[in-house]
Design a protein around this nucleic acid. Structure first.
Lengths: 340, 340
DNA sequence: TTTTAGCACTCACTCATTTGCAGTGCTAGT
DNA sequence: ACTAGCACTGCAAATGAGTGAGTGCTAAAA
């Protein structure tokens, strides 16, 4: 079992290392603990045996291991509230009612990136339970239509429809009318099945060339849920961290950031703010990802901060929690869904 | 004046340096020119005096200066056609008629990035002479509307309208009707002035609370032209180039890439493929930007390749020319604007 | 007049060596 | 349970010698 002085020691080492980025030695801690370096060394040795500390080489000071950070985050970190300064900066954004939720989120993450020098990511999409509000079809020429879908939260998506043969305009408008009649209020992820099982049987009675028309519309309307926004902020920021001091480190992390599957690795299903350290980050052993899911105002997604393992954990976690709360509160308030 | 052997020499040096990335010395060129190293050295000295060559240090081989590259591109480079292999890769994309123009361009640039290891950028927006085809307004709740604008090329943009006071639905639909009647066929960059000078005087007679409604619509419709897509491909690619071998170089170029005004620096007004070398690139003294404007199928913008100054100029220039041609040819063919 | 051979010189790079420093583990004594 | 002291370790920064690829210049050859 880990003793209380050892806990204090671990905390001190994590915090010192976060601040200075250099291995911390026993002498430096003497004053803080009012004991000799030898005592500290003994405790350090214990903590190392427990797997919470590491040495960079045999005669170096200690740095926290992944487990050390983990223990720190789970047990040692004081959940002290977000600092006044930090909060102020974020507040001004949420007080600006002009901003759309989405823009407010990106602005906030820009600020977080700026003040922390880490990289932030927002990954968002329409909530899959948004309801379809209207389908609009606009002809461009005899073979091309634009289908526009509007959801109850005001999100708009559009798609090209290419018709394989000429279809009289009247057929198109009949179809559109039918779709509107039957689909309004349908959650967008249920649209495809509703098309298939409810609309298809009906459309054949209404519309002459129903095969062609149905297929075209099915293609257009069934892929709407998938579009995801991704926005990185401050990719270059993280390079300021001293852990990325060699060319290879830098190149490595940059290409990780650019890689195709980065997005899928960021996505988070958990509602809490979660911390993934080093090898658990799925991105790179040298980084920590702090992230959480959010859901508000018809949008959902993940916000994430990527920094070095040697990260200001409390600060980042608190900021993210604060941000998430505001997104979700603000989301409600801003929807104007004054259901009366 | 520069002699013909000196021209050959400059060409040889540029091409050798492009290949190897090391300063080229006099001995290496002896065989090619069937003369002794001393002769070469004399000519090199002349070229250096003319400002076409540089030394990295007093006893090093020569590398081309910015002016050297410039001279090479303008006078020495053989405009040899794009290589069969390169062309083949690009062709398969343009033969795939499934792809939308925009996607075809990005795919092409991905390929160019891949085979050259440079970074490519596409910067696109709707052509400002696209004509407005339809305005659609969908109410979300009593204070919020979505305005949707469709152009004759099938491009769709939408915008939130927040009303400052409750407006009866009938007023909205009257306005929408009016807008459609008067704006269809108007080039989108003329919409704001038409709103101001033709529509505003009329709307006041039709609509009760015309100030509020007009302002809301004016805001929504007057900013449509500005949206620009930007897509970088292979940001990490350029880091493979040996010029970016120190941490600082890498960090430096990455933050240039991430900076806000990058986009405005890429934009090109010229219809030709232009080459901006080093300090002329506006991005970084160590890079060359090859770029051109394109305009097709209702879209316009810039495509650019960013590589080291030590770039395979002919190859890149030819690929970009080829791409531009195809974009513009394909654009016409694909619009389905079968004006009959 | 142009080209070449020869020579002295320069500078970047590599490699090995040295030295100092910050830190450790261990032991014996408080 | 803590501390002082000591021997030891390995990194980091500094130093220095040797090598090789290159230059400019001069004087002679073509």
């Amino acid at each position: 079992m880990i003793g209380t002085r050892q806990k204090d020691l671990l905390r001190e080492i994590v915090e010192e290392y976060v601040k200075t980025a250099r291995p911390v030695g026993s002498k430096a801690l003497c004053k803080k603990f009012k004991c000799s370096s030898a005592t500290i060394r003994n405790d350090m040795a214990t903590l190392e045996n427990l797997g919470y500390l590491e040495k960079t080489h045999i005669s170096s000071g200690r740095i926290p291991s992944e487990e050390g950070y983990r223990y720190y985050v789970d047990n040692l970190m004081e959940p002290k509230k977000i600092s006044g300064e930090d909060m102020l900066k974020l507040q001004t954004i949420f007080n600006n009612k002009e901003l759309e939720l989405n823009d407010a989120i990106s602005k906030s993450l820009e600020i977080i990136s700026d003040i922390t020098n880490y990289t932030s990511v927002i990954l968002g999409k329409e909530s899959s339970d948004n309801k379809l509000q209207k389908v609009e079809v606009v002809p461009i020429n005899s073979r091309q239509l634009i289908a526009i879908v509007i959801t109850d939260t005001g999100h708009v998506e559009n798609k090209n429809i290419i018709l394989e043969e000429n279809i009289p305009a009247i057929e198109i408008s009949k179809t559109t009318e039918l779709l509107n009649k039957m689909l309004i209020g349908t959650p967008i992820d249920e649209v495809p099945s509703k098309l298939e099982f409810e609309i298809k049987p009906i459309i054949r009675n209404y519309v002459e060339n129903y095969e062609v028309v149905y297929n075209a519309f099915y293609n257009a309307l069934s892929n709407f849920t998938s579009e995801r926004d991704v926005k990185f902020t401050g990719k270059a920021n993280i390079l300021k961290q001293p852990e990325f001091s060699t060319v290879d480190d830098v190149k490595n992390i940059i290409s990780k950031f650019e890689s195709k599957d980065m997005v899928s690795k960021i996505e988070e299903d958990d509602d809490e703010v979660k911390v993934y350290i080093g090898s658990k980050s799925e991105i790179d052993d040298n980084v920590t990802v702090v992230k959480t899911k959010y859901k508000a105002h018809g949008r959902e997604g993940t916000i994430a901060i990527i920094g070095p393992k040697r990260m200001e954990y409390e600060r980042v976690i608190n900021m993210l929690e604060y941000l998430k709360e505001h997104i979700e509160a603000d989301g409600k308030e801003n929807t104007h869904e004054e259901k009366e």
